[in-house]
Design a protein around this nucleic acid. Structure first.
Lengths: 125, 125
DNA sequence: TACTTTGGACTACATCTGTAGGAAGGAGCC
DNA sequence: GGCTCCTTCCTACAGATGTAGTCCAAAGTA
């Protein structure tokens, strides 16, 4: 698994998500998975796939005329990268600020708060 | 304060941050503030300011030849917008997943974890 | 075997972003 | 008052992104 800090765009993320969920898949299968959620033209999805291959976020298995795509970068890795740059950009790198903002804005349900506390509690112990 | 869902780019955020910190400021002052942190050419900063004005994220006070810029959108508003779209893109909208990932990856110091717990505790009570 | 169909490769194009140069007008210096 | 300089406005330009069309070869079909 490569440790590329490749920038994956908004639209490309959706393609990656499909393949992180299940791979390898053919372009047609990917298009099938994305059809319900997006209104993208199949051509658009082909373009996104091609760009991801070029970025080395995806690779392709060419077996005769069967092209199957699979991720070269892990979801966790990408999430970490994205989170880091997002936190840096918006919250000066402080996850505390982010959560604080969430809490302040009432964007968290009591259940969510409780679940988060449990999560942190587990970590402590 | 307008409720625009204007997309503020990475570089533009830095300009906004300066003005959220203190405003109004002249372009020269903004450039002065950004000089230490960035290696940007003053021209570049002028461009960013102009774009933000066009996006209606900033406004300008023209007093003769004194141009002073100030934010039209609140920092909180922008943070919320950014956070929402980021969470949606990467974590399917779940802040729980984000924090969980942080916790799992040891990206949080025990102090941070403790602070977060306190934050949540306050909210509960 | 010639025709159609299907999917990948390449091309297109507007917009956004990062990065900056050039023109033009007012303010200060000589 | 003219020249210079600072600052704003307009222009530039390459790379990324969203969105999609065209071309071509391989595979199936008649």
């Amino acid at each position: 698994m490569k440790h590329t800090a490749c920038k994956i765009s908004e639209a490309e993320w959706q393609v990656m998500k499909v393949l992180w969920e299940k791979s390898p898949l053919t372009a047609t299968q990917i298009i099938g998975c994305l059809k319900p959620e997006t209104q993208w033209n199949p051509k658009t999805i082909h373009t996104l796939i091609a760009r991801l291959v070029k970025k080395e976020a995806l690779a392709v298995n060419k077996d005769r005329n069967l092209f199957q795509y699979y991720p070269l970068v892990s979801k966790e890795e990408c999430m970490r990268e994205e989170t880091k740059s997002f936190l840096h950009k918006v919250y000066d790198g402080s996850i505390h600020l982010l959560v604080a903002n969430f809490v302040k804005n009432e964007s968290l349900s009591p259940q969510e708060i409780d679940r988060l506390r449990k999560l942190l509690d587990e970590k402590i112990n």
